[in-house]
């Protein structure tokens, strides 16, 4: 489904990703852990096509297509979703209007008709209820004045509406108390099936207690230095990341 090969990328001419390899098959949940500055957020931005994140070499194939050749909106319509660590506040553009436009754009790209306002509203209300967001948030400006936890839940609400094929969750647990964390995790788990895949980027093992990964990878200095199953996350939790320094240059475990 998603095949990242030897990906090198830079921001403001600083090399951040240095030959990253990752293969995500349908239905799999991959956790990516690692210290600050390892390139975790950069990976999400590069995959979603953010301006200023330059791909220097390597390739990314998504459903057999060259992902890096697509505009950000095309990637989204193709089924890529990035839940942001710091969602942008956009006063004046209502959440509802925004999501209607996004869902319609995706449906149109798939040759489907736009949803009627009433049908869409029904879906949006259900999505809000699932992540415990009051309905008033649909009318408010996108993320405008939302608390940290509300922003994260709003991201998951968008995910529920867009029904993507690959979801990248960029530190969706940061700044959440345990109840909010459960809400986010339940939202994600409700979407898990044989075809939908997740890349869960996180600092802490805590989120992975609720979203059980099939694979755990350690990202350090722009590449994956170790991969394992869910038990690796526990190991990291107790050992920290200091051991990374003892790894050799191309240290694959």
């Amino acid at each position: 489904m998603l095949e990242i090969s030897q990906l090198q990328a830079s921001v403001e001419e600083k090399n951040i990703l240095k030959g990253l390899n990752l293969t995500v098959k349908p239905g799999e949940v991959h956790a990516i852990m690692g210290p600050n500055g390892a390139g975790k957020s950069t990976l999400g931005y590069v995959l979603s096509g953010r301006e200023g994140y330059e791909v220097d070499s390597g390739s990314v194939t998504f459903n057999g297509q060259d992902l890096l050749d697509m505009e950000p909106e095309e990637r989204a319509r193709e089924g890529l979703f990035l839940a942001f660590q710091y969602p942008t506040e956009i006063p004046g553009v209502s959440n509802l209007e925004f999501m209607k436009a996004a869902v319609d754009a995706k449906r149109k790209a798939n040759g489907e008709e736009e949803l009627s306002s009433a049908d869409f509203l029904k879906k949006a209300k259900a999505a809000c209820a699932q992540v415990n967001l009051p309905l008033a948030f649909l009318k408010r400006g996108v993320n405008e004045g939302f608390s940290g936890g509300e922003k994260k839940r709003n991201e998951i609400m968008q995910m529920l509406l867009l029904e993507p094929k690959v979801c990248i969750l960029d530190e969706s647990d940061s700044g959440l108390d345990i109840d909010a964390l459960k809400v986010v995790a339940e939202g994600v788990n409700s979407q898990r099936d044989d075809s939908r895949s997740f890349i869960v980027v996180t600092h802490y093992q805590r989120l992975l207690d609720y979203i059980k990964p099939d694979f755990v990878h350690v990202l350090s200095e722009g590449k994956i230095v170790r991969s394992g199953d869910a038990s690796l996350a526990h190991e990291l939790e107790s050992a920290g990341y200091a051991w990374l320094e003892t790894y050799s240059e191309d240290g694959e475990a």
Partner: peptide, 19 residues
């Protein structure tokens, strides 16, 4: 942010201006 959800650049600009 708007484009990352599938909204075209043109439509996103209209939404932001209007907003």
């Amino acid at each position: 942010y708007l484009r990352s959800r599938g909204v075209s650049k043109e439509h996103a600009l209209v939404m932001l201006n209007y907003g």
